[in-house]
């Protein structure tokens, strides 16, 4: 996928062939857009319900130019970053405890497993009852979305850490918290990363769901506004924004982090 992972290992022939998937991908999307535009123009459905890609692009441009989408995206981003960081802190601590303390794993661990199965937007009614329909309720749902994935990721990473790392570290004088920060967590990182990534995507989904209900400017709420205005083009344009933010987080944060870890450890695909 990236030039970096390709350089060391692949042959020149493989590099020459590398543009082909991109070509196929390009053709696929162009065809998809053409079919979409064709269907929109066919008159089968009214334009306000099924706009073509050009109309959606126009709506996207308007939204961006007016600053509405940008401010909405920033509001959503702020929430997810805060919520995610809270989850990261609690989840890491909880995962470490579950991974290292057997009694906790047998008791609390099973509860975490169960809660992981619950889509976090299911917490929203309770959050509203407890906290009111406000910023804190939204944040609560985001935290619940990421928390259990991160916890379970850290836990499995810690459990699968080869014991000889810990043994060597203790032998070299590592004690107490340093054993965790300098050895157990970094040793678990490759396994932890997938949990972090899953946590992010769950949190992002929960946030969008929660924002549908909460009337302040945000991406989720812009979807709802589009619906209220019978403006399918805006709804679709906001959907494009939501995908873009999700992909950007993946490409700018998680993929580089994963790649760096894999390269350091020598875990090539």
């Amino acid at each position: 996928m990236s030039a970096l992972t390709m350089t060391s290992r692949t042959t020149p022939a493989a590099e020459r062939a590398d543009w082909r998937p991109w070509l196929r991908r390009g053709v696929f999307y162009l065809a998809l857009l053409a079919v979409w535009e064709g269907l929109a123009r066919s008159g089968l459905w009214p334009g306000y319900l099924f706009p073509g890609p050009l109309t959606v692009l126009g709506a996207l441009w308007d939204g961006l130019a007016s600053g509405l989408f940008v401010r909405g995206a920033l509001a959503s981003l702020q929430r997810i970053v805060i919520g995610y960081l809270i989850s990261l802190g609690i989840g890491t601590l909880l995962g470490l405890l579950l991974g290292r303390i057997r009694v906790l794993d047998e008791t609390l661990g099973s509860l975490v497993m169960g809660l992981q199965a619950l889509p976090s937007v299911c917490w929203l009614p309770l959050a509203i009852l407890w906290l009111g329909l406000n910023e804190r309720a939204i944040l609560f749902v985001v935290v619940m979305g990421a928390l259990f994935s991160i916890t379970l990721g850290v836990e499995s990473g810690v459990k699968n850490t080869p014991p000889h790392y810990v043994q060597a570290a203790r032998n070299l004088g590592a004690r107490g918290p340093a054993l965790y920060t300098d050895v157990i967590l970094p040793a678990a990182l490759p396994a932890v990363l997938s949990g972090l990534k899953q946590g992010w995507s769950f949190a992002w989904r929960s946030l969008m769901a929660a924002e549908l209900l909460y009337y302040t400017l945000s991406l989720g709420n812009l979807l709802q506004t589009g619906r209220d205005l019978n403006d399918a083009a805006q709804v679709m344009a906001v959907m494009v924004m939501i995908i873009a933010v999700g992909v950007a987080a993946d490409q700018l944060v998680f993929t580089p982090l994963e790649r760096r870890t894999r390269e350091r450890w020598g875990l090539h695909r």
Binding site: H164, Y165, Q167, A168, A169, N171, L172, V183, P186, A187, L189, T261, R264, W265, G266
Partner: peptide, 14 residues
């Protein structure tokens, strides 16, 4: 007293 093992037990993240 420092132990040394066959698998060296170096830390791959460092």
């Amino acid at each position: 007293r420092v132990l040394l093992f066959q698998e060296a037990a170096l830390f791959p993240w460092l």
